[in-house]
Write a protein that binds this DNA or RNA. Structure first.
Lengths: 198, 198
DNA sequence: TCTCGACATGTCGAGTTTGATATGTCACAC
DNA sequence: GTGTGACATATCAAACTCGACATGTCGAGA
């Protein structure tokens, strides 16, 4: 079985190994961590994909069962083989550039299809969303600094800062874009320009 | 046929309509535009997916054949129905937050799995990559400003600026992260910490 | 005791996406 | 004239992913 995932080879498995390296967890637990942390801006997966992948990884010896608890809970832990595989993957430069999917960014790409007022609505929505995320992550980073007693907040602090930089950039871009559109009475498609259906 | 794509409903079709709105083009042409422009940070698609989707869209009347040229070239154009569909999609708030896939960002998330020196290698690689992209996009933006005679560079200028903001944020974050790791002799996993395989 | 909601895992059909493979045209250089 | 590389479209098996459905446990509070 070749186990080649199309989006950046085997990203899901390394995400899981990495999550387990941080701390052991069950499939349920990992599914929630995906949703809350990784899913927001790095990768996305559902439990229906996570459970089979965990069994696969266990079969390959990259993770192991740490504990079988109540309610059928199976807690996994990363093995040294898993860590070695993850490190090898991280050090190898990405096979393919691109391979990105981000619906939110795609929408921003297509803004030219809207009229001026509509574009402003979408841009304001973008600005608000980014600002909210920024506040959220800033708090989280402060907690990480306290928790680790380090300025960087440890490895998770690095991640949080990445998010902070990204969302700040988006919010700043949105404010710039709003100003540009507001200053340009001709921005966007006129309804007049719409071509007839055929 | 329900035509529900899992990653953000029907993102591919709207990306294609949007690309055709900018200017008509053939499947081959759109495949290249995907690779060069959209694929880099918004969405990704191959010709083997693009050709069938174009036929589907034509069947639904959202795009139409503009011209049949040499070498079997079929140039498509967006119809008013297609534009209306695109606008409706853009104005409807995204069904699902998240749904993001970005292998590059995922790698950054997993940096904690590396030792100090290895993490620095990856971070420096990240910083260089982002800086290169930044230079590239800055040039492109200047050309768009010239071309459109507008400060914003038109809708494509907005897109280019988004990229500029994003890559600048990544480069700045990488420099910050490098400084943090360099200042912290204890960063990263010690080989000693690696657990035995079982 | 019973019910509700969070915990926890599992399955599968339907649909999506890839990478490989195939076919052929055209322009240009050698 | 013939080889090379860009142009241009097509197909399909294999693999991946989703959403929906299914099953059951456990603790807390009514």
């Amino acid at each position: 079985m070749s186990r080649l995932s199309y989006y950046g080879d085997m990203a899901l498995r390394y995400a899981l190994i990495g999550l387990l390296l941080d701390r052991p967890g069950s499939g349920y637990d990992l599914a929630r961590r995906f949703e809350e942390v990784v899913g927001a801006y790095a990768w996305d997966a559902r439990h229906s994909q996570i459970y089979p992948e965990l069994r696969q990884l266990e079969g390959e010896g990259l993770i192991e069962v740490a504990e079988r608890g109540a309610r059928g809970r199976t807690t996994y832990r990363c093995t040294s083989e898993g860590l070695a595989a993850l490190r090898a993957w991280l050090m190898a430069p990405p096979a393919r550039p691109g391979g990105v999917r981000n619906e939110h960014v795609l929408r921003l790409f297509l803004l030219g299809a809207l009229g001026r007022e509509e574009a402003l609505v979408v841009l304001r929505r973008t600005e608000e969303g980014a600002t909210t995320q920024l506040e959220h992550l800033t708090e989280q980073f402060a907690r990480l600094q306290e928790g680790t007693g380090s300025d960087s907040g440890g490895p998770l602090g690095l991640t949080a800062q990445y998010g902070i930089h990204s969302y700040r950039a988006t919010a700043e871009w949105a404010r710039w874009a709003i100003a540009q559109v507001e200053a340009d009475p001709d921005f966007g498609l006129r309804d007049v320009e719409v071509r007839s259906g055929h």
